[in-house]
């Protein structure tokens, strides 16, 4: 799974990536700076809990992806079944450029975690 993360991190504008469990525990991380990945996993799980509460009300099926954007960066979370792929991005990054690669990485992680 580290290989997959390294591949993701090769894109310009990506600060790092990690895989976490849905209940907020870090599985593996590959980040370039001193990001506190364990805390981020815990904070992200609060959003996942809220998504699980809100989702039936919105009637839009199981969640596949969510992102949170602030004026200093963006984090994207991909649902990979039993885990979540987390990608840290610069604000300047245009998602259209490598979104397909990120999805395919998420699918690969899903396959790896299943078996």
């Amino acid at each position: 799974m580290r290989d997959t993360l390294s591949l993701i991190n090769g894109f310009r504008g990506i600060r790092g990536s990690m895989i976490m469990s849905k209940d907020g525990f870090l599985i593996v991380a590959d980040v370039k700076d001193r990001t506190d990945v364990e805390s981020i996993a815990a904070y992200a799980s609060a959003i996942i809990i809220e998504i699980n509460r809100a989702w039936p009300k919105l009637n839009i099926g199981e969640f596949k992806m969510f992102s949170v954007t602030g004026d200093e960066g963006r984090i994207i979370f991909y649902n990979t079944g039993r885990a979540v792929l987390v990608v840290f991005l610069d604000l300047s990054v245009k998602m259209t450029i490598f979104e397909d690669e990120l999805r395919s990485a998420a699918r690969e992680i899903e396959r790896k975690i299943k078996f």
Partner: peptide, 17 residues
């Protein structure tokens, strides 16, 4: 908390919307 600065927006994608 995740050091993203001031919040701007969120996007959530589900299977059907």
């Amino acid at each position: 908390q995740m050091m993203l600065g001031s919040y701007r927006y969120s996007a959530f994608e589900g299977e059907s919307g």
